[in-house]
Design a protein around this nucleic acid. Sequence first.
DNA 1: GTCTCGTTAGTGATCGATCACTTTTTTGAA
DNA 2: TTCAAAAAAGTGATCGATCACTAACGAGAC
Lengths: 347, 347
Amino acid sequence: MVAAKSDRPAGRRPTVRQVAERAGVSHQTVSRFLRGDPGMKPATVERLREAVDALGYRPDLTARSLRTGRSGVLTAMLPSPVTAFPTPVLAAAAEVAHEHGYFMEVAVVAGGSRERAGRAAELLASGRSEGVLFLGDLPDGGVPSGGDRGALVVFDHFDDQLRGVGQLADATPVAEAVAHLASLGHRRFLHLAGPQQWASARARRKAYLETIERLAPDYPGLASAGVVPGTWSADSGYDGVAQLPADAAFTAVIAANDLVAMGAIRALGERGLSVPSDVSIVGWDDQEMGRYSTPSLSTVVVDREAQGRLAMRRLVALVRGEQAGGSTGLLNRLVWRESVGPAPART
Amino acid sequence: MVAAKSDRPAGRRPTVRQVAERAGVSHQTVSRFLRGDPGMKPATVERLREAVDALGYRPDLTARSLRTGRSGVLTAMLPSPVTAFPTPVLAAAAEVAHEHGYFMEVAVVAGGSRERAGRAAELLASGRSEGVLFLGDLPDGGVPSGGDRGALVVFDHFDDQLRGVGQLADATPVAEAVAHLASLGHRRFLHLAGPQQWASARARRKAYLETIERLAPDYPGLASAGVVPGTWSADSGYDGVAQLPADAAFTAVIAANDLVAMGAIRALGERGLSVPSDVSIVGWDDQEMGRYSTPSLSTVVVDREAQGRLAMRRLVALVRGEQAGGSTGLLNRLVWRESVGPAPART
DNA sequence: GTCTCGTTAGTGATCGATCACTTTTTTGAA
DNA sequence: TTCAAAAAAGTGATCGATCACTAACGAGAC
């Protein structure tokens, strides 16, 4: 780590008035120049440009905010401890914010979703932030209100788009996965579910159960051997399988995510079941490691950057009072790798 | 995703003067109250507390910043595209920033480290940010100066603390790993190096070569079979091994990180070499998946949150002109798992 | 009873930019 | 050449808090 602090005494930064003086115009003209007012003489513009360059002038954003009432700040709010929330989501969101002239601030709030909601309201009320991107599980009391002012977008870890687009982006791949596995001969399924305070985990659980029910007529014997509650962690997958009764019978597993899948695979191995010859398993996230592990993980490819971009675009639109832009193109895509194979012959 | 925008017209927020009027004092007294001035009559304090509560007053942080000259903002600067920079680092940093009364803003800058350096200077110059935490590889031209004002802390992905603490936090585990593997009988080593613009990658490469040289007298035959340049990705590990000449002989691999290790394991498998019976391999990061993969990965446990906290503490200290606090306790720790075993019997 | 000193609160200026409004300059047609 | 209208630039107030001073108050010493 390297640390550096300038020791130049910094003889105070130049202001609009100093630029104005140098360019021989009024401070207001400088302001116009800075804001890119079209109605200015080229000669004036040129002189101002020179003055700004010469003085190394940079507008004071704080002063501007005070006057305009817009802070230009949007906040991404994360729960603490952070459950490995992927940086690409944050980074993409920050990038979009910048593109639209906003700064993205990160707030990490300890405690439950309720505390986060309170903090969000406070941030908005303080004028510090114009909008909040609420990352993590949903607050118990539903969506927090934006308070007196400001906008708020809630982004569930794995954006299910339940409301925004009216499409079950989470449910679709689950349904597809079950169907595919059924077509491979699998009949007894197990679902290692994610934490149910997450909308996406709920959506997947629901889709899992519904799909099995829906397909049961087509595939005689198709049934769920159970839904094991858990978290997003590898431990959870391991424990979920390890704690199953010895006679639990299933050949296909839908895991909450890749970590859970990986944990489950190990627990299966310790039970003498190998993947995919005895059991097939599908994860979610397309984690880089899962592509190279043995067996490589079948999973749902999620475009994290697109998610982050989309969420921030929504927030920006909301803050500006525009209509939230439509096209999402957030298609979660299943990829089949070694962890899935045909069902073993019946014993 | 859920979006909500308050539609209450928000009849303007109360200011210090309104609070003052309601409490029957002057605006300055309100300011004192807000700043927690100790020299105030309890009765006055009580009236002010009531007024603030009744009006729902929140100080305008922008106005405060303008007057005090302190923006209260520190910036974490990330490269784009983001190379999976772990969120816990960011989150911990943000938390520390908040503890000290700062907001942490995230800036994602596309382009090389040079662009980032420029952006950092600009941020500091604009007064928008009081300090920058520079995440990612080092800029070509060395550490950027803080410019006219502001402080800057550079945080290399895997903090090597080369300078800050004067200790090779990165080198130590590498040396330990080589020594341990040598004691298990391994003699021919391979290093899958990380991108050399990262100080940590350079430090590890250096430590790898030095350690082998240092231990060679104790272990006859000990030598490096090569250093393969690469990145932090799994692809890199896979390709690095796949592209080795067919007669490359080694039994121990030091990989840049867990992803690289995982990629390498697969490539080794495709060459008919299994881990750990033919080749032992050590990663870095202790990624959750690596704990459950088969084989589970021997790796270096890194306390990401501690890294983030430390970096931000340094930045805060620097911004405040204090001495950077001492105790780091950032001990990277090796854990031995299935991917490491005794060297195979000589053929 | 007065005087001094410490405590508590008030007054007006200020941070640096933008907004609303006014004044000056330029343009173009009669 | 003149004059109205448009274009360009200027003036002073303002956003909401804090800072530097100043004023009033109350307690204790002589």
